[in-house]
Each structure stands twice: as C-alpha cells, then as structure tokens.
Design a protein around this nucleic acid. Structure first.
Length: 303
DNA sequence: GGTAGACCTGGACGC
DNA sequence: GCGTCCAGGTCTACC
C-alpha cells in the first residue's frame, strides 16, 4: 500500500536523508538510483515490515505492505518522528537571515535531522560512532542488526541495494533481545570492543523498565537537565550527548568531535590546532540555535 | 576543574 | 602474512 504523510512547510526530503550518516546505518539503506530510503521496522504487534520512503510533494511518500488501521497509524507516527515532519524552523531561518554561511538554510529547508524510530536505536548508534572510524560504526551497526534483529517476514521480497550493494532484512534489535545476551558475547560477536558493557547495560535498563528512553521524545526537562540525563548513560559523554540532543530537537549544544575541531580550525584559525572552547566561542552568539548553526554551516574545509 | 592514560577495532603501511 | 602505527570519544584516577 502507498500513502503520503504531510510535512510542515518548508520541507525537503533529501535534506533530511542527507542531514547526517544515519541513512548508511542498518537497518536503514538507501537506493541512490530511485532516491528511496528503506527501513526495516518492527511494529508494536511484533510484525516486521519494510518501509520505502520517497519524496512527496507535500511530505513523505510511504510504500509498504498492506497495513490495518492501527498499524497505519503507528507507521504514520513513526515516520513523522523520523523526519521531524511537524517541526518548525522559521525562528532559526529568521535568526540566520543575515549570515552568508547559513544563507542556504531556508532555501534547502535545513534543520531536520534524520532520526531512528526509537531513542534507544539512536543512543546505541551514537555510542557506536564514538572513538572509532565511520566504517567501523557501519560494521558494528550491521553486525548488531544481523545478530539480534528480527527478520523481515514478507515472502518474495526484492531487497533494496544501497550504494554499496548492502541488503537489509532485519529490524533494529529490541532492548530485550540485547539484554538476553551478555557483554562478552556482544564484544566477541559484534566487535564493539570496550563499548560492549555500555550497550548491554543500556539494553538491560531499558528492557527492565528502569530507564524510559522513549519519554525523552516529549520530555519537558530543560536542555541542560536533559543533557545530564543522557550523560548518566555509560558510553555517553559530551559529544554523544550533544549529538543526541540535536536528534531530539534541542540545539543549544555543539557535538564537538575531532572533525569539528578540524573544520573550525580551517574556518577561522588558518589550520592551527584549536580546542573545544574555540568552537564554543565561535558559535556562542547563536544561543539556542548553536547546534543548528554549527551543523549546517557552509564550511570552507570539507576534509 | 583540568589532564593523562587506558580502552578497542580495523585500516593503512612497511617489511 | 605479519607486525606496527594510528584515528576516534569516554571514563577514571590523579593533581
């Protein structure tokens, strides 16, 4: 079946898909030839379906298997969250109107970041981005999905190929499926190294109900309190917390990693080494839009 | 509050 | 094929 989920204007499908690297991490895959974002989704009733998401004139076109009414409602809510379809960036566009380095923001409808269906998935993936190279992050995500994900149950499905010919056939693991394992097995099988205890502990806390990550989607905590909450998770430090805040729609902190230091160094310091404080200083004037200004800045240096 | 060092994987490189 | 080096954030111990 096919249906359209409307977006608040302005909206640009490709700007969201390309907002960061999430589209390359299982169980996402992206078909460059048809500009189709695929995601293998586990519904609350246990059914696993494939979503094919494309640009629609007024929002996101969804193609998937036949769904009943409650399944369709669930998919609509999830896709709305993943694409931030209800978000309003007009205040950011107004604030950045006179900044040439952000001139393209409104034109390209920049601001939305692609999200996973669950905060749990976004936190695990963010931990997998820390202290490693992007290729390793992709490998770890893939192995995690292969090992603990639930398989797609459609028959005769033609699997999509992304730019590297990858085929996704399983959903992202539930906290319960990871919690049923153990840190040694995760370390050995998924090759996540020292991250294994953090991943396992997070899964156990969420599966047991001790930690309700999904409530953070609608939390009315201040950004500072939310940041503290995120940093209570093992494996989540300043960078990871800022990254997750951006995903949650809070833009007061900058995810400062080594590449951030590099681009800022080339932008303002002639390539000389800089520290996190220098990055903060350069974007301080953007206040609650600091993260957005940094993320969508038109950098001189692109690596 | 600031800093140093350990943590671990996988790719690049030299032999 | 093997060994070595390096990049990449977080955490802990220490000052």
């Amino acid at each position: 079946m096919k249906f359209v989920i409307p977006a608040r204007k302005p909206f640009n499908f490709l700007s969201v898909v390309n907002s960061h690297g999430w589209r390359q991490l299982a169980p996402f895959s992206y078909d460059e030839a048809t500009n189709t974002l695929h995601h293998i989704l586990l519904l609350s009733n246990g059914r696993v379906i494939e979503l094919k998401l494309r640009d629609g004139i007024y929002g996101v076109n969804v193609e998937t298997e036949k769904l009943n009414r409650s399944e369709k409602k669930e998919v609509t809510d999830i896709v709305t969250w993943m694409f931030g379809l209800d978000l309003d960036f007009s205040a950011f566009y107004a604030a950045s109107r006179r900044e040439p380095k952000l001139a393209r923001a409104k034109k390209l409808s920049l601001g939305r970041l692609l999200r996973a269906p669950t905060v749990f998935e976004d936190v695990i993936k963010t931990i997998l981005t820390t202290n490693t190279l992007w290729a390793a992050t992709r490998n770890m995500s893939r192995k995690l999905v292969d090992e603990f994900g639930k398989p797609l149950n459609s028959v005769g499905r033609v699997a999509p190929n992304d730019s590297e010919g990858r085929i996704e056939t399983k959903s992202f693991p539930t906290p319960e499926s990871i919690a049923a394992s153990n840190p040694d097995y995760i370390k050995e099988k998924i090759r996540v190294g020292y991250r294994a205890p953090s991943i396992y502990q997070l899964a156990v806390r969420v599966a047991s109900g001790q930690l309700d990550l999904e409530s953070l989607k609608t939390s009315d905590l201040s950004t500072l309190e939310l940041r503290k909450e995120l940093m209570r998770i093992n494996g989540v430090g300043p960078y990871a917390a800022a990254n997750l805040l951006m995903i949650l729609g809070r833009h007061d902190f900058i995810p400062i990693d080594s590449s951030a230091l590099t681009v800022v160094s080339h932008e303002w310091y002639k390539g000389k080494p800089v520290i996190a404080k220098d990055v903060e200083k350069r974007f301080a004037k953007w206040g609650e839009y600091k993260g957005l200004a940094f993320w969508f800045w038109d950098w001189k240096y692109n690596g």
